[in-house]
Deep mutational scan, measured.
Amino acid sequence: QTVHVKGVQYHFPNPEEAVKFALKVAKDLGGRVEFHGDEIHVE
C-alpha cells in the first residue's frame, strides 16, 4: 500500500497502517485523503 503526501511516497505492508497514517497526516496538514485503487493520496 502506497501513501502519497506532497510528492513523497510512503510504503506500508499493511493497508490498515497506511490508512491510519494517511488520516493522521491529512488531519495534521488540514488536507483530505483520496483513495485511488491501491494508492492513497493526501491532498
Score class of each variant (00 low, 15 high):
11 H>C: 13
19 V>P: 02
3 V>R: 00
39 E>L: 07
25 V>Y: 06
3 V>P: 01
28 D>S: 12
5 V>M: 06
35 F>C: 10
4 H>M: 12
24 K>I: 08
1 Q>I: 15
2 T>K: 07
35 F>R: 06
40 I>E: 01
19 V>M: 15
6 K>H: 13
38 D>T: 12
35 F>K: 05
37 G>I: 05
20 K>P: 02
4 H>P: 01
3 V>Y: 01
26 A>H: 02
41 H>G: 02
30 G>M: 08
17 E>L: 10
43 E>C: 15
37 G>F: 07
25 V>W: 11
32 R>V: 11
32 R>I: 10
11 H>N: 09
38 D>R: 11
30 G>L: 06
16 E>F: 10
4 H>V: 15
17 E>W: 06
42 V>N: 01
7 G>R: 04
8 V>E: 08
38 D>E: 10
14 N>Y: 06
25 V>S: 05
17 E>M: 10
19 V>C: 13
35 F>W: 12
16 E>N: 08
13 P>E: 13
31 G>I: 05
21 F>V: 02
9 Q>R: 13
26 A>D: 00
29 L>H: 06
5 V>C: 05
7 G>T: 04
25 V>T: 09
26 A>N: 02
19 V>G: 03
32 R>H: 11
42 V>R: 01
10 Y>I: 05
4 H>S: 09
36 H>M: 09
31 G>K: 03
36 H>L: 10
10 Y>C: 04
29 L>W: 09
26 A>E: 02
36 H>W: 12
5 V>Q: 01
17 E>T: 08
37 G>C: 09
5 V>A: 04
7 G>M: 04
27 K>Q: 12
24 K>Y: 06
15 P>H: 15
16 E>C: 11
1 Q>S: 14
16 E>I: 11
8 V>G: 04
42 V>E: 01
21 F>W: 13
7 G>L: 04
1 Q>P: 09
30 G>S: 06
18 A>I: 01
24 K>C: 14
6 K>G: 14
20 K>Q: 11
20 K>G: 05
9 Q>D: 06
28 D>W: 13
34 E>T: 14
23 L>K: 10
12 F>H: 02
40 I>S: 01
30 G>C: 11
31 G>C: 10
7 G>P: 03
25 V>I: 13
29 L>T: 13
36 H>D: 07
28 D>T: 12
14 N>W: 04
21 F>K: 01
27 K>F: 12
26 A>L: 04
6 K>D: 14
6 K>T: 06
31 G>T: 05
1 Q>L: 15
41 H>N: 04
32 R>P: 02
18 A>N: 00
26 A>S: 05
6 K>L: 14
32 R>L: 07
29 L>S: 09
30 G>Y: 06
32 R>D: 04
18 A>K: 00
38 D>K: 12
40 I>L: 07
1 Q>D: 05
22 A>N: 00
3 V>A: 01
3 V>Q: 00
2 T>C: 07
36 H>Q: 08
33 V>Y: 04
14 N>L: 06
2 T>D: 04
17 E>Q: 09
